[in-house]
Design a protein around this nucleic acid. Sequence first.
DNA 1: AAATAAACGAGACGGTACGTCAGGTCTTAGA
DNA 2: TCTAAGACCTGACGTACCGTCTCGTTTATTT
Lengths: 175, 175, 175, 175
Amino acid sequence: MITERRRGPQRSESSRQAILTAAAHLLIEHGYDHLTVEGIATEAHVGKQTIYRWWPSKAAVIADALAEGLLIPEVVIPPDSGDVRADLRVWFLTIFGFLGIPGNETLLRSLVVAATSNDDVAVRLDERLGLWQALSGRLESEQVDALLGGLVVRALRGGTLDENFAERLIATVIR
Amino acid sequence: MITERRRGPQRSESSRQAILTAAAHLLIEHGYDHLTVEGIATEAHVGKQTIYRWWPSKAAVIADALAEGLLIPEVVIPPDSGDVRADLRVWFLTIFGFLGIPGNETLLRSLVVAATSNDDVAVRLDERLGLWQALSGRLESEQVDALLGGLVVRALRGGTLDENFAERLIATVIR
Amino acid sequence: MITERRRGPQRSESSRQAILTAAAHLLIEHGYDHLTVEGIATEAHVGKQTIYRWWPSKAAVIADALAEGLLIPEVVIPPDSGDVRADLRVWFLTIFGFLGIPGNETLLRSLVVAATSNDDVAVRLDERLGLWQALSGRLESEQVDALLGGLVVRALRGGTLDENFAERLIATVIR
Amino acid sequence: MITERRRGPQRSESSRQAILTAAAHLLIEHGYDHLTVEGIATEAHVGKQTIYRWWPSKAAVIADALAEGLLIPEVVIPPDSGDVRADLRVWFLTIFGFLGIPGNETLLRSLVVAATSNDDVAVRLDERLGLWQALSGRLESEQVDALLGGLVVRALRGGTLDENFAERLIATVIR
DNA sequence: AAATAAACGAGACGGTACGTCAGGTCTTAGA
DNA sequence: TCTAAGACCTGACGTACCGTCTCGTTTATTT
């Protein structure tokens, strides 16, 4: 197979990385509103045009940063142990651990806003959370909606996210 | 007892109404981003300062517009018929009816973004949706979270919102 | 007569002065190209919009700075002594004195470029030079053209501007 | 004598021509400001670097375009008939003919701006106009300055350029 | 013939400035 | 003293070009 290569300079991988890293950092630090393309460009030591050349909007940059794992670490998707409730318990505790880190509640709000405004972000966020992959075929879609939605609503309301809540939410939705 | 009245003109009720109406109209028309204080002021034939004098942010204006019922009509909260599932079924269909109106999916996104960014909006939105009032004492909090979260996640994903989905979500969460 | 006054704040005279002063300074310092609206705004401690609100282009700002005498000092127009050649001799020497100051040859180039590109600047520059006022009615228009044009062409070519040249140019054109 | 030839391809004459032609066309069409190196490169189907490799600035490109006769056609310099005034009359009418073509007044402004900003352009423009060649040794330098300057000042002011004006300017300066 | 090197078209890069929009504050005249 | 109007400074938007640099190709001269 012939790899068709353009003539002329290739896209700079180092700039791409710098942009995504800067965007992730600024999102975590200052939130989605307050996130500016100029700020990203400055922090990444990059021209603004280099961002606009490759991404249509700052939301698209965030979507890529998500996909690269710069915002949410790889969620451990437990192997199918056969016991769905046990698998879910592990998943919830992982998420809770992440959300328990100071500042990450703000990050969650930013990501919800971004995902609500931009479908790409929504898709990447879903991938990151890994709930669908973990449960594909093992649960009905409305069960997944209820689990994920219940978690997010609880978190945004500032409710406590502990083992007890996980237990009760799982018990509510499964069976 | 003497009612202490300030000297000078009082707050103009007509301006207040004009501002809330304009804000609601512009939110529905153009979405939460693209909603600007200047735009509201212009549409309401009001000085910008008149907005800033009485509200700290555009989110606060939206919170008031919500409270006044300018964004979501009064949700019919069915009387406690004794049958929680039947009551929920009515509630879901009312909400689905509202979300089915063209443009209201965009409004939902705007409201989710606003509520995620601002607690006042979140509180007013909850009031409007009426789920908590309807079910206070009749369901566990994680059940309400699961129902509301499930609905919102489904709607934001663009999934179909019909009687069948309501039925299955209710069946999942209750019992 | 009733002076109809707008409601709201008036134009800030201090900002206007700061803008014109900054523009004059930057033009003298760096030349017409290299003169930027952003630079003027920064030096004048003024928002860019305040410039764009009142002037359509940087050329218009320069036209006003010229009119205010911030670029070329009041040219002494000698009273009509009856002897046109003597009056012209004084005028030329005044101009030569101005052009002899280091940096002012660059300023001349900037002004010629600005005047060539923008009619307002041309009119204000003419006013400042005062040749027309001084000689209205005493010379034919082609004589004035020849005197002014001859001076400018000579100056732009870098030719020496001294009493001798003035004498010869006057002798050429008058009589 | 050995012609020292580099190894590798020679400068492309077709690219050089395309660049000068494009520059001339764009200058005539859009004026000196609005003339961009990128625009020239695009119109000439040439890489930007090919321009920067051979010319230090866009002014230098214009100087070459002038020298090639792409902006001002060959001015017919009348043979020395012995009658300077008659020779000048012919020269003026030729120039007036050129300036009378619609769009060429704009071109004149562009050329004056370019010549004022860049000495090479000034030299090439002088060559093109041919006034100096025509009159070398027959007139004093201040006479040439007065003739050329008078013409340019008149033209830039938008004054009419006709036989009558030529006659009077010549009469003013010669004798 | 192979190796070498410069010129070419394309266009990505870090930047500067553009002209516009909006934010939140301040000022004025009128009610 | 509240209001409508709107000027002010600030800062971000998305675009246009700058002048430099980097590719992969083409072409002409050594070796």
